[in-house]
């Protein structure tokens, strides 16, 4: 089992979990009423995008895939982040 603990995938998982906990901490209400907050929104969207990138690269193994697939998958992630923040900005 040691080789699984000391595996790159496990390290990636630990990092993903850490970001999840951090983003949960940021997104808590702490008793206050939810209000529009561009800072919180941008931070959690960016964190989600980083997580998505790691899942695509390491779990889905796109980092070793042909170029077109890399471009498509990374392009989806970056494009989605830009569009979501863009729509939020305009709204």
């Amino acid at each position: 089992m040691g080789s699984y603990l000391n595996n790159r995938l496990t390290h990636v998982w630990a990092f993903l979990t850490a970001i999840t906990v951090a983003s949960w901490w940021i997104g808590q209400s702490r008793g206050a009423t939810f209000q529009l907050d561009a800072m919180v929104t941008l931070t959690v969207l960016l964190m989600a995008s980083v997580k998505a990138q790691l899942v695509i690269q390491y779990f889905m193994e796109v980092r070793s895939a042909p170029r077109w697939l890399k471009q498509t998958a990374y392009g989806w992630n970056i494009g989605l982040l830009l569009l979501l923040t863009g729509v939020y900005w305009l709204g």
């Binding site: 939810f34 959690v44 979501l84």
Partner: peptide
């Protein structure tokens, strides 16, 4: 989904 439905403001 987690970011959009739970976390963002």
């Amino acid at each position: 989904l987690f970011a959009l439905f739970y976390l963002m403001r």
